[in-house]
């Protein structure tokens, strides 16, 4: 099989020397996975190289790292597809988590967030006693499975801007996990789960980074949005969820009158002028302000929308 020589630059780290880059040359063919590249570097060139890997088939979530700056699973990355024009690849540990050794980071904060959402099904007593059989439609199974497919790789959390700024935010993976149980017809603890998740859900900025980086296509941000759909059933009142209720009322109102959400009006009504201005400045900084100025116009089939809204109420 045809092989090519590649250069792998790895950002190494240990407690004594701190961080430094080291380069390795080796041959790879068009099938060579990055986990195999690392294994060969370790067994042939640098036995001290530290990284995590287990399944080499993208189901165990061990091999999370940054490859050419992109949060990736090493086993999911084919070396020759990742090299640049000089046949080089840069590999470093994930952002956000404290470094331990080379490509290994300490992701305890990730696990802690997962544990916070009561990540287990609580079925009806009669089912646990074996007296009743649980049924579940194939459609329900498909949706639950989508969010259950998370492999605890931690990449989404390492890429999520809100997690870094807001300690109370549970982060994308924990939200996907939490929602997976809300969504499951077999579970009996919906309201407790809403208590755990609702406030946090409104701390997501909908930047879609988690959607981009997730190797399993779990789409945590969609789980967050779906959680917010349960706001009506949520009994609690935290400052954020109070704001959210106002926001929802405004949206309904806007849709009923104009048939379209006007972001700028919405902002003002929900947050008041001061907050809206602060947000506008943030948006300006992040280059997203253009969305605020997109021209809004009323939609045509208002009646239909009004019908829908009426039905909802």
């Amino acid at each position: 099989m045809e092989e090519k020589e590649i250069t792998v630059n790895i950002k190494k780290y240990n407690d004594k020397d701190g961080a430094f880059w080291k380069s390795y040359k080796l041959k790879a063919d068009k099938y060579t996975q990055m986990t195999e590249v690392l294994r060969r570097i370790k067994s042939e060139q640098d036995p001290s190289l530290a990284y995590r890997a287990s399944c080499h088939m993208a189901v165990c979530g061990s091999c999370s790292m940054k490859i050419n700056g992109i949060p990736s699973l090493a086993c999911r990355t084919i070396a020759l597809q990742a090299v640049d024009e000089k046949n080089e690849i840069n590999v470093e540990s994930m952002d956000y988590y404290p470094g331990v050794r080379d490509l290994i980071t300490d992701i305890d904060v990730f696990y802690d967030k997962m544990y916070k959402v009561m990540p287990r099904l609580i079925a009806d007593e009669s089912v646990l006693m074996g007296e009743n059989e649980q049924r579940m439609t194939p459609e329900n199974q498909t949706e639950v499975w989508k969010f259950q497919e998370c492999i605890y790789c931690g990449l989404c959390v390492s890429a999520c801007p809100s997690v870094k700024e807001d300690e109370q935010f549970l982060g994308p993976a924990a939200h996907a996990k939490g929602f997976r149980f809300i969504d499951d017809v077999r579970d009996t603890k919906k309201s407790e789960r809403l208590d755990l998740l609702m406030d946090s859900a409104y701390r997501c900025t909908s930047c879609y980074m988690c959607y981009e980086v997730c190797p399993q296509d779990v789409q945590p941000v969609i789980a967050i949005k779906k959680t917010k759909n349960y706001l009506d059933q949520y009994k609690g009142n935290t400052p954020i969820t109070i704001m959210a209720r106002k926001h929802d009322d405004t949206v309904e109102n806007l849709i009923e009158t104009t048939g379209k959400i006007k972001e700028s009006t919405l902002f003002l009504k929900t947050f008041g002028f001061g907050e809206a201005m602060r947000d506008a400045i943030d948006m300006l900084k992040s280059g997203k302000f253009k969305y605020a100025f997109e021209k809004d116009s009323n939609v045509k089939n208002m009646n239909e929308i009004k019908n829908m809204m009426g039905e909802k109420k």
């Binding site: 079925a123 074996g130 049924r135 579940m136 439609t137 194939p138 199974q141 499975w145 259950q148 499951d184």
Partner: peptide, 21 residues
Amino acid sequence: GEIVSLLDAWGAPFNRQPDGR
């Protein structure tokens, strides 16, 4: 059979038939 039912009770999302089994 009973172990699969137990796993189901603990939350394993087994693929389903149209009637939910």
